[in-house]
Design a protein around this nucleic acid. Structure first.
Length: 183
DNA sequence: TGGAAGATCGGCT
DNA sequence: GCCGATCTTCCAA
């Protein structure tokens, strides 16, 4: 688990992520190979892959495997530790009591992540930077959320008991995926 | 070239 | 708990 920040004005701690294993993972955008959209994931680790979900929401992945493997981690939720007014300002109308970075779409909007960040280097000159989180944090794992393929793989990881974890809000029901049995 | 699916969310009932 | 918004991507013809 890592800490994430944007331009030092906002500091947030990632509390929920999902792993996508590239061409070995039917649920990954990289499953079909280096398409124009997914080619970022086939590059070097430490870069950001941003895509548009349902034509409405941006979602952010961090490329984490060697070049060519297309392994990536989807950022699903974070807890704001510094700069919450900035995050709230990016999400007008959000419920004040609710965690502002719960859910991949909300996380991107709150941190100001968009297509401009697609392919950016989060380890070096990029607008974002990531740091290792302290050891000893209780981590849970379970099935990934909102996908219709490879749903049995426990590749979702979250801080146990963390309020900002988004979890399965409404599993896709079009195809009758009734797998959800999370915490 | 057309159609369908989709790693979502907020609002309404 | 259910529904609509909205558009990119990919597959099939």
């Amino acid at each position: 688990m890592v800490d994430a920040g944007t331009a030092a004005e906002v500091r947030a701690r990632l509390v929920e992520v999902e792993a996508y294993l590239g061409q070995d993972d039917p649920a990954s955008h990289a499953f079909r190979g280096p398409t124009p959209r997914a080619r970022i994931m086939f590059g070097e680790a430490g870069h950001l892959y941003v895509y548009l979900s349902y034509g409405v929401h941006h979602c952010a992945n961090v490329v984490c495997g060697p070049a060519g493997t297309a392994a990536a981690v989807l950022l699903r939720a974070a807890r704001v530790e510094h700069g919450e007014p900035v995050v709230r300002a990016r999400r007008p109308g959000s419920v004040p009591a609710a965690p502002p970075l719960s859910g991949p779409g909300n996380l991107c909007r709150g941190l100001g992540i968009g297509f401009a960040d697609n392919g950016s280097d989060i380890c070096g000159s990029g607008r974002m930077h990531f740091e290792a989180a302290p050891a000893g944090i209780p981590i849970s794992s379970g099935p990934r959320v909102g996908i219709s393929r490879a749903t049995d793989r426990p590749l979702r990881f979250w801080w146990t008991g963390e309020a900002a974890v988004s979890g399965a809000r409404r599993p896709h029901t079009k195809k009758g995926t009734g797998w959800w049995a999370g915490p």
